[in-house]
Design a protein around this nucleic acid. Structure first.
Length: 437
DNA sequence: ACAATGGTCC
DNA sequence: ACTCGGACCATTGTA
């Protein structure tokens, strides 16, 4: 492209942006959204831009080795699957898989989908007790997913000049105010499985640097405590308690020391479910218990955290009146179906009315923290730089010499950026790579 | 090109 | 019949 063309093109972009600005400023002011833009979202733009351009280093040798290893294991699994099925078929096709499992092998069919048999992980796990094949399918899917979505995709997106991976952070794509990440999505890099951890290990710090990450502890539930001013929730966080353990103690009527891992797991599911506006039905299917048992847990939860119930009722009532909900910084989400006569639609909107102020406020908080971290890093002339945001977590690439000062800076910035009715708590991790070990 | 299904993260 | 909030992406199979 010639200079003349480049000039016209870029000036048109600038002019168009200015016109949009002048059009939208009064609209934002009318909705009391101007300061959200002027003080948060606007200033965040250059921060995100710097993060995108910084990118993150990936150990391509490790990634290639993983790719080869996974390919080999997949070939082997494929052979075993064909042998067990008695024929070759496309394992990736849910349709063909369903025919093998439920027609040829006559395994008991579970749920069905719009188009046929469901073959999702829940169904296959149940079937695994009766036949060898479903377990192999699960193993195959696990590896195939990691290989295609993460390993091979990352290799293709490595920038030829920087040798690093440069995601795109979308600032205005979500309904709640969260960021999203694409090409590649670096906000859903595997973390739970062991193979996932090996992929994470390929995300490494640059030479002479370490990765420093700070993640908010239970930010959603702390925001809920702030909104609801529920006494028990406030007390738990002010005392630095393990909130899932505390919830377990309350719903099982057992003292906290006697909580088993299983009881804690149930309580954790409930705590998450609460934030999502979960029903007894949802909890039952999640925990594989009866609806009645689920309802008992929920009843006990609200008995203990009575302020939470009140908050939920009030936020739903307000959503019905106003037709929208807002976050602590005034971010706003319209809920056009909140007064729908269709029960399913209306109830969905009601769950959204509960979840959005919580998730959205958490997003407000970490965005504010990003502004502060970026500003302080530059003010203090540090070479450390923010490279990732994963909803409740910030990842920095830090020269080893700057580690001590940056550690304090990050924790301080994240914990004090907003004052809630409960303290914000941040856990720091320093590592050579994003993996666990 | 698009819907359906399935799966990864917070 | 309902199935818990917010995202992105791969693959199959049909259009």
């Amino acid at each position: 492209m010639g200079l003349e063309q480049a000039k016209n093109y870029s000036c048109e972009d600038v002019y168009g942006s200015l016109q949009l600005f002048e059009l939208q400023k009064p609209q934002l002011e009318k909705l009391a959204l101007w300061s959200l833009f002027a003080d948060l979202e606007g200033p965040l733009i250059p921060v995100l831009s710097r993060m995108e351009r910084a990118g993150i280093e990936v150990d391509m040798d490790l990634l290639s080795a993983l790719s080869a290893e996974f390919a080999e294991k997949l070939e082997k699994l494929k052979g075993e699957i064909y042998a067990l099925a008695g024929e070759e078929f496309n394992i990736n096709s849910t349709q063909q898989l369903g025919e093998i499992l439920f027609e040829k092998l006559k395994l008991p069919r579970g749920r069905k989908t719009k188009t046929g048999y469901s073959t999702d992980v829940k169904v296959l796990e149940r079937l695994a007790a009766q036949h060898e094949l479903p377990g192999l399918i699960l193993a195959y899917r696990n590896l195939a997913k990691l290989k295609s979505t993460y390993i091979d995709k990352l290799a293709r997106l490595r920038h030829p000049d920087t040798g690093r991976i440069h995601t795109s952070f979308n600032q205005c794509g979500t309904a709640t105010g969260r960021l999203s990440s694409s090409n590649p999505n670096l906000q859903n890099i595997p973390v739970r499985s062991e193979e996932g951890q090996r992929i994470r290990s390929a995300f490494v710090a640059a030479g002479g640097c370490l990765l420093l990450s700070g993640d908010y502890s239970q930010i959603d539930l702390r925001v809920l405590a702030h909104y609801s001013r529920d006494e028990a929730l406030l007390e738990a966080f002010r005392n630095g308690e393990d909130i899932h353990r505390r919830t377990a103690a309350e719903i099982f009527f057992v003292s906290p020391e006697l909580i088993t891992p299983e009881m804690r797991r149930v309580a954790k599911t409930i705590n998450f479910g609460i934030v999502y506006g979960m029903s007894s039905y949802g909890l039952a299917s999640q925990l594989q218990i009866s609806r009645k048992e689920a309802q008992t847990f929920i009843d006990r939860y609200f008995e203990h955290y009575a302020g939470v119930r009140k908050f939920m009722e009030e936020i739903i009532a307000r959503a019905h009146e106003q037709g929208y909900v807002t976050t602590l910084l005034g971010r706003r989400r319209q809920l056009p179906e909140i007064n729908s006569r269709n029960r399913t639609k209306r109830e969905f909107a009601e769950r959204t009315a509960i979840n959005t102020p919580i998730q959205g406020t958490a997003a407000d908080i970490i965005k504010l923290a990003m502004l502060r971290v970026d500003r302080e890093l530059r003010e203090q002339k540090l070479a450390a730089r923010m490279i990732l945001q994963i909803h409740d977590e910030l990842v920095l690439e830090v020269p080893k010499k700057e580690l001590d000062v940056t550690r304090d800076l990050l924790q301080q910035a994240m914990e004090t950026v907003m004052e809630l009715a409960v303290p914000l708590s941040v856990n720091l991790t320093v590592s050579q790579n994003l993996g666990k070990a």
